[in-house]
């Protein structure tokens, strides 16, 4: 099928700004689904609130646009009631890690078979560029005009420590890798977290003098490196990308089925 078969064309052109990295994530996600050949009606996209969450509205799957930060809670309900469906949750960094921080770590701990895509643009774009949990020390935001002094989370470390069984990172520049990782994350039987570094030229880029979308993508190319590369040894500041965690643990829905069976048998 062509890309247009996966979208709700009536909502295009989309509402994201020129050069927004979220559009690249949308593009990569469609290609991942296309390559896997999953039926559109076998996918449920559950999103929260924010620029990132608008992605659900543009895709012609089953979609739920829910509460800020609570998409994973809704997704858990969907997955438990219909475990045969593929549940994908696109989230922004603020949606996933500030407002929805608890939902995020507990979904990871349960290892429920959901694919969480954290579209990390380091800012709250929709509401005017406030700093987010991933803005990082020393950055500028509308709520941090004299620099932000909060340290940021490392999504990969956080998800790994919380128990996610598939954890990966890519960027909007590395589209082929991003598509491959999303494919693997969807296929993984357990909680998958994919962080995609996404550029926000309108708020983060402009305020932090990172230039336009092209400059921001070049910057992502410069500051990232494949996991375990020589470059990382020489320059520990580089951000690694690739698959960090890939392991098998009991999946929540199947484990819960066992509990139901035991309860019915009364032992």
């Amino acid at each position: 099928m062509a890309v247009k078969d996966y979208i709700r064309e009536r909502f295009f052109p989309h509402m994201w700004c020129a050069g927004c990295g979220h559009g690249i994530v949308l593009n990569g996600l469609i290609r991942a689904v296309e390559k896997l050949g999953i039926d559109k009606s076998a996918i449920v996209m559950v999103s929260g609130i924010g620029c990132s969450s608008r992605i659900a509205g543009y895709l012609d799957f089953h979609t739920l646009h829910t509460l800020h930060g609570r998409a994973l809670a809704f997704a858990t309900g969907v997955k438990l009631s219909k475990p045969e469906l593929n549940v994908i949750v696109p989230m922004g960094d603020g949606d996933a890690l500030a407002i929805g921080g608890n939902h995020f770590i507990h979904a990871a701990r349960r290892n429920i078979n959901i694919t969480a895509i954290v579209m990390n643009n380091r800012i709250y774009g929709m509401t005017g560029g406030q700093c987010s949990p991933l803005s990082g020390y020393g950055t500028l935001a509308s709520t941090a005009p004299y620099t932000n002094v909060d340290q940021s989370f490392d999504v990969v470390q956080l998800a790994s420590a919380a128990g996610a069984t598939f954890v990966a990172r890519s960027t909007g520049f590395h589209v082929q890798q991003m598509t491959e990782i999303i494919q693997e994350a969807i296929l993984h039987n357990g909680f998958s977290v994919v962080e995609v570094m996404s550029q926000c030229p309108t708020y983060f880029g402009r305020r932090n003098r990172q230039g336009d979308a092209v400059d921001m993508l070049k910057y992502m190319q410069k500051i990232t490196t494949p996991i375990g590369s020589k470059a990382k040894e020489q320059n520990p500041e580089l951000i690694e990308r690739g698959v960090f965690v890939r392991k098998e643990l009991p999946e929540y829905c199947s484990a819960y089925d066992t509990v139901i069976r035991r309860a019915k048998e009364g032992k």
Binding site: I7, F12, I24, L26, I30
Partner: peptide, 12 residues
């Protein structure tokens, strides 16, 4: 790559 990187899905 242009098709895949286009944030607007405008290239085919």
């Amino acid at each position: 790559l242009c098709e895949m990187r286009c944030p607007d899905l405008a290239i085919e």
